Amino acid sequence: MLSEYEKKRLKNIETNKQILRELGLERPPTIEGYVKKTSKPNNRRAANTNRNKDTTSSETGDDSISRGRGIRRSSRLAKLPAKSFEEIEVVERKRDSYISKKDLDWRKYRPNPKRFGEIPDVEVGAWWATRMECSHQGVHAPPVAGIAFAESEGAYSVALSGGYEDDVDWGEAFTYTGSGGRDLKGTKNNPKNLRTGPQTKDQILSAGNLALKISCETNKPVRVIRGHKLDNEFAPKEGYRYDGLYTVEKWWEETGLSGFKVFKYAFKRMAGQLPLGTCEKSVK
């Protein structure tokens, strides 16, 4: 017999599917042409495709990045308490003050992530082993938060990581749950469960949630990356993949699985892009 939680989850999934259908979005009858990797791509380090073409990029302003230099997190940052997604976003904004200037050199070469639309030299299907490498490329800047945004202008990008079990992903269209309202302290057995902490209060229409609402009103494109933790055929087997530009077609409120208010968004993939999933590759 199904539990009350499972009944609620299935009901929410059907509601989300119906909303997508009402927007004229349907799950493709087949995913012909989709190729899911069975092993990790050979190149695990993200770097700009033209990094060897112009050695004076820092002077000319050409977009390029460093050779995959990682960020060293300080012990002070690691000890900062995280009790909500709102606080995670604050922690990420403060991160620069805890990182040495030497480790920030890579930022000189990172394409500006605070832009709507495509990032130069990054094609659909670009793949990274970690969120930080994706951040270095400027596609999705936050290494933890799921929404990159300017609150008054809209969302630049979102990351799909399977954090909400009642979201629907049809590849060319999907539903997305907003951020906030979660207790990120985790549990005794899983004290650092930042992605799936329990919902403990209502989400509020601010920060990334408000930005996605504005994107719905302005129809500005949003970059989308899918992570390996998604439980569907569109997820990469490992790492994170750039799946192109989407628009936010609708937003609404509903009661989440934990009984608290959440914000939901329906995304539609923009036409004229490379087919979804047929170009999974590491960035060279």
Rank of each mutant, 00 (worst) to 15 (best):
M1W: 12
E6A: 10
E6Y: 12
E6F: 09
K7S: 03
L10Y: 03
K11V: 01
I13D: 00
E14I: 08
T15D: 04
K17W: 03
Q18H: 09
Q18V: 03
E22A: 11
L23D: 00
T30R: 05
T30M: 03
V35L: 15
K36P: 00
T38R: 09
R45E: 04
N50R: 15
R51V: 14
K53G: 14
D54V: 07
T55W: 15
S57F: 15
D62T: 09
D63R: 02
S66R: 08
G68S: 10
G70A: 14
P81Y: 12
K83F: 13
S84G: 07
E86V: 09
E87I: 10
I88F: 11
E89G: 03
V90H: 10
E92H: 03
R93F: 06
R93L: 10
Y98C: 07
S100D: 13
S100T: 15
L104R: 11
L104P: 00
D105W: 11
D105S: 06
D105F: 13
D105H: 05
W106V: 07
W106H: 10
R107Y: 05
R107A: 13
K108N: 04
R110S: 13
G117M: 01
D121S: 11
E123M: 04
E123D: 11
V124S: 02
G125I: 08
A126F: 03
W127I: 02
A129G: 02
R131T: 09
G138K: 04
G138R: 02
V144A: 11
V144M: 05
I147M: 02
A148M: 08
A148V: 01
A148P: 00
S152P: 00
A155K: 10
Y156L: 00
V158P: 01
V158G: 01
Y164I: 12
E165Y: 13
D166G: 02
V168W: 05
W170A: 12
G171V: 02
A173C: 06
T175K: 01
T177R: 10
G178A: 05
G180M: 09
G181H: 05
R182W: 13
G186W: 13
N190H: 13
P191C: 06
P191F: 15
P191T: 04
N193H: 11
R195G: 02
R195C: 08
P198W: 08
P198T: 09
T200Q: 10
K201G: 04
K201P: 00
D202C: 12
Q203Y: 11
L205N: 10
S206G: 01
S215D: 04
P221R: 11
P221F: 01
V222I: 14
V222A: 11
V224E: 02
R226M: 05
R226V: 10
G227Y: 15
K229M: 15
N232Q: 11
E233V: 14
P236D: 08
K237I: 04
G239S: 11
R241C: 08
K250T: 02
T255I: 15
T255D: 13
T255Y: 12
T255A: 07
G256C: 12
L257V: 05
F263N: 00
K264P: 00
Y265D: 01
Y265I: 01
F267I: 01
R269V: 03
M270C: 14
L274Q: 15
T278R: 15
K284P: 07
